[in-house]
């Protein structure tokens, strides 16, 4: 198999990643965002695994040790990306765990997991915070007190 179709697994990884990215950007539901993030990262895992494959290669297992029979001399798939991706999977799971923990806390304090509703509440908080902290410009503050006898 040659051409663009010959590397179909790379296409799959791109499609998965884009679905994930779309979800992260477009979905207002926080849980859906977390799922999309997972999908996005899974795409990358597939890419790494695909990268390791060698035409006609087999699993990089040291068969002599297993059965004492003759040694397989053919090509092995590159084991390094597999190892890397094992680590990356752990990382991704942890990210998901932290994200879910945050979402649970958000549900408790805001009462919703819809991003736009939360954003509206946050904006209201922020506005109130801004107004409370605002000093009328130092110079304008006492302006009215001076009016009248400012210009002698």
């Amino acid at each position: 198999m040659t051409g663009a179709l010959g590397i179909y697994n790379y296409w799959i990884y791109v499609v998965l990643m884009m679905i994930g990215l779309y979800g992260v950007i477009a979905k207002p539901n926080l849980i859906k965002q977390a799922i999309a993030l997972g999908l996005f990262q899974t795409g990358i895992f597939l890419y790494y695994i695909s990268m390791a494959v060698i035409d006609g290669g087999t699993a990089p297992v040291w068969t002599t040790i297993l059965d004492g029979a003759q040694k397989y001399e053919g090509p092995y798939d590159n084991p390094l990306p597999h190892v890397l991706i094992l680590t990356a999977i752990v990382v991704s799971v942890s990210v998901l765990a932290v994200a879910l923990a945050l979402i649970i806390n958000i549900k408790r304090t805001y009462g919703t997991i819809e991003y736009d509703e939360i954003e509206a509440m946050d904006q209201a908080d922020k506005r109130a915070d801004y107004q409370r902290g605002q000093v009328t410009d130092a110079a304008d503050d006492v302006e009215h007190k001076l009016e009248g006898h400012h210009h002698a």
Binding site: Q33, L37, F40, A99, L102, T109, Y110, D125
Partner: peptide
Amino acid sequence: MNRQALTASLRYLILGSVGAS
């Protein structure tokens, strides 16, 4: 201190994870 810390953190998490990916 302020519940917005949660949304700030989640937002950072998502953008940060995309960046790291």
